[in-house]
Amino acid sequence: MATLLTLVLPDFVVDVERRWEGLAPTHPLIVGGAADGPGQVVAACRVARAAGVRPGISLREGALLVPHARFVPGILDRYAEAASQLDELVRRWCAEVDWVAIDRAVVAASAVKSGSLAAAADAMQRAIRDELGLGSAAGLADTEVAASVAAALVAPSGLLQVLPGYDERFLAPLDLCWLPPLSAAARERLAERGVTTIGALAAMAGHEAEAAIGAGWATAWRSARAEAPRALAGTALPRTLTRVLPLTHQVSSEDVQLAAEHLADQLSQGLAQIGAFAHALTVRVMGVDQRFRGRGFTLRESTRQRADLAPVARTLAARLWKFGDPPVRVSVVASGLTADGPQLSLFGVPSHDQSSSRRLEGLRTARNFRALARGSLARRPRAS
């Protein structure tokens, strides 16, 4: 059986924007700014790319190629929120995940919680599509390069498994454009030497590959030979946890604070479920103009207690209320996750007094966090 899974979301940015804008899958979408703006295309859907739109061309040129496309500026907060939700979803099936990029993850078979790697990959893809509205492709192989190429071959959605021991033979007949570490300039130099397939590159001697490719030749050459040059750096905890609440009616400042407190309660439960503690909390609100405003706060001690998180979330929400239009959406993000809780006392506690000491420490921690939130985030009077 394959030992590695590469999960790729090839149209992550476009899919996130399409979900937010409520566009049909066939409607052309270009990310980067207004159609008559001075900027460049950041990402484009497959319909627009088929018409000649490519990242890096001017937005005006993109508008000429696809005049009926929807142009959106691209909002980083949307991608951060989607990435957090994606990370949490993938970890339902995996104990450790190595996020190579915001839209690419590598999972070892040994990290799958139950069942086979192929079954976990299929379940992940279904959940990503049904719950997040995002497309994904998966490749299974013994090496990361073969798994990545397999995922690329079945993009934007699909699953391809390379038989065990066949990674090099799977790669050999493919064009060099499928080899991730190889630049376009390097491919041109190899083509001048008659090397156009991955197998032909793998058959070259090391010094020949170095002379033809130049910088980075070792990584490309070893990848062509289906070797595994990189050790996985999987993590057991997600980077962040995010909870979101839409506001469907005209709200007051108290409503927004209650919403933030409710989301902090959900985060507390989520942190307890995965055995994590948070070092920081961020509250984001979105107005009717779909612009995000956010404020973050670094906690003095890592915590997952509702009594610690809720007052900070309320205070941050109250501060955000003072700026901009009333929000239509609130989200709270716990970040800096760790498996280590608040620092314990250096001195032991007598056994007969442990329960009362724990209650006292809990009260002290909650009181400290509330005081810290009020004191550090409240507006201080200016010195005369």
Rank of each mutant, 00 (worst) to 15 (best):
A211K: 10
L65D: 00
F347N: 09
A307R: 04
Q125R: 13
G234C: 11
A120M: 01
D77A: 15
T298H: 08
A378R: 13
V288L: 11
F323S: 13
A51G: 07
L140Y: 07
D175I: 01
W178E: 00
G62D: 00
M1D: 14
V112R: 10
R78V: 06
L241Y: 09
A108P: 03
A172I: 09
V72P: 01
G37R: 02
L281D: 00
A205S: 12
Q266I: 02
G62E: 01
L160H: 09
D175K: 02
L346W: 09
L263A: 03
L153K: 09
T219C: 12
G362P: 02
R239N: 09
Q343C: 03
V251W: 05
L86S: 00
S335M: 03
V256P: 04
Q250W: 07
H279V: 04
M1K: 00
Q290D: 02
G115K: 08
G336K: 12
V288H: 10
T143V: 13
V162S: 03
Q354P: 03
D353R: 04
Q125G: 13
A366D: 00
L337H: 01
S384A: 14
S157Q: 14
C177R: 11
D325K: 04
R284C: 07
S183N: 04
E361A: 15
L346A: 15
A24D: 15
D340A: 08
E210N: 06
G234P: 09
A146I: 02
V256S: 07
G52E: 09
S148G: 05
L201V: 10
L316H: 03
A137R: 01
V100A: 14
R19S: 13
S331A: 15
E17Q: 09
W99F: 11
V31A: 01
R380L: 14
S116G: 15
I213A: 08
A215H: 12
A233G: 03
V285H: 03
R225Q: 15
L247P: 02
F297G: 04
P38F: 00
A191F: 13
P381T: 06
L65H: 03
R370T: 14
L9H: 12
V42F: 05
T315M: 11
Q273I: 10
L267T: 12
R359Y: 02
E21L: 15
L9F: 01
R374Q: 15
A105H: 05
V72I: 02
S357I: 01
L5G: 01
D15A: 00
Q250G: 08
A152Q: 14
R193H: 14
R306V: 12
A185W: 08
Q290K: 05
M1S: 12
M124T: 08
A211S: 15
L258E: 15
A120F: 04
P38Q: 05
A260D: 07
S157H: 11
D11W: 06
A83H: 08
G139R: 04
R126I: 15
T315S: 10
E17F: 00
R367L: 09
R104C: 07
T365D: 01
D353H: 11
L163H: 08
C45Y: 02
R193Y: 14
R60E: 14
A109I: 00
A24M: 09
S356H: 09
L247M: 08
R54I: 13
P25D: 15
D289Y: 03
L316Q: 06
S116N: 12
P173C: 04
I274Y: 02
R367K: 11
A184I: 11
D122N: 06
